[in-house]
C-alpha cells in the first residue's frame, strides 16, 4: 500500500449530494468504515458515502487532514479538536455526530458528543425548550407527572439559567 510504494495514495470520496473530494488515504482511514472499504479492495474508484452531505463531508475531511498531520501527541490532538469544533453551530455539530457515527470515527464522535453535551449542560427545561424550539406538547397533568418522576434529579443542583 501507500507506505510501501512511497507514493501517497489518494482516495476519492463522494457525498450523498454528488460532491467529490480527494483525500490522502492515510487521513481517510481514520474512518473505520472507509478503512474497511479500502481493505476490502473497494477503494479503486470512488467511495460513495450515502449518509453524509457535501458540506459536512468537507468539514470532516478538514478534520481528518488536520488531526492526521499531528504526530502522536494526545495534548496537541485535543487542542486541535477543541479549536476545530469551537466555531461550529449546533446544527453543524448534529450533522457531524451523525457523520462520525456513520464513518465510525470514534475520536471525532467522542469530541462532537462532548461538545453537544456541553451546550446542554446545566440548563433548565425552559432553556432547552427555547434553544431547540421545542413545543411543549405535554398536558399540564402529564408534565406534572414527568416532573414528579424526575424530582430526585433536581435536588441540590443549580442551573445556569433561572427558567
Amino acid at each position: 500500500m501507500a507506505a510501501e510504494t512511497g507514493t501517497p495514495t489518494t482516495l476519492t470520496l463522494k457525498s450523498n449530494d454528488d460532491e467529490l473530494f480527494s483525500v490522502a488515504e492515510s487521513a481517510a482511514i481514520l474512518s473505520v468504515t472507509i478503512r474497511n472499504m479500502v481493505e476490502d479492495g473497494c477503494a479503486g474508484g470512488v467511495i460513495p458515502l450515502d449518509n453524509v452531505d457535501g458540506k459536512t463531508l468537507a468539514s470532516v475531511i478538514t478534520y481528518m487532514n488536520g488531526i492526521s498531520a499531528i504526530p502522536a501527541d494526545e495534548e496537541k490532538k485535543k487542542s486541535y479538536r477543541d479549536k476545530f469544533l469551537s466555531d461550529k453551530d449546533f446544527e453543524t455539530l448534529a450533522d457531524m455526530v451523525l457523520a462520525a457515527n456513520y464513518l465510525n470515527m470514534s475520536c471525532l464522535m467522542d469530541a462532537v458528543s462532548a461538545k453537544i453535551a456541553q451546550v446542554m449542560e446545566k440548563k433548565s427545561v425552559g432553556w432547552v425548550r427555547r434553544k431547540f424550539g421545542i413545543e411543549n406538547d405535554y398536558t399540564p397533568e402529564e408534565e406534572a407527572a414527568v416532573k414528579e418522576e424526575h424530582k430526585w434529579t433536581f435536588e441540590g443542583v443549580e442551573t445556569d439559567d433561572d427558567n
Binding site: V125, W127, V128, R129, I134, K147, H150, T153
Partner: peptide
C-alpha cells in the same frame, strides 16, 4: 454517548421538555 457526559439532572431536563 452524548448524555454520558451530562448529569442525571441534565438528562431529565431534556426529557421534561417534550
Amino acid at each position: 454517548v452524548i448524555t454520558s457526559s451530562l448529569s442525571p439532572r441534565d438528562v431529565c431536563s431534556l426529557g421534561i421538555s417534550c
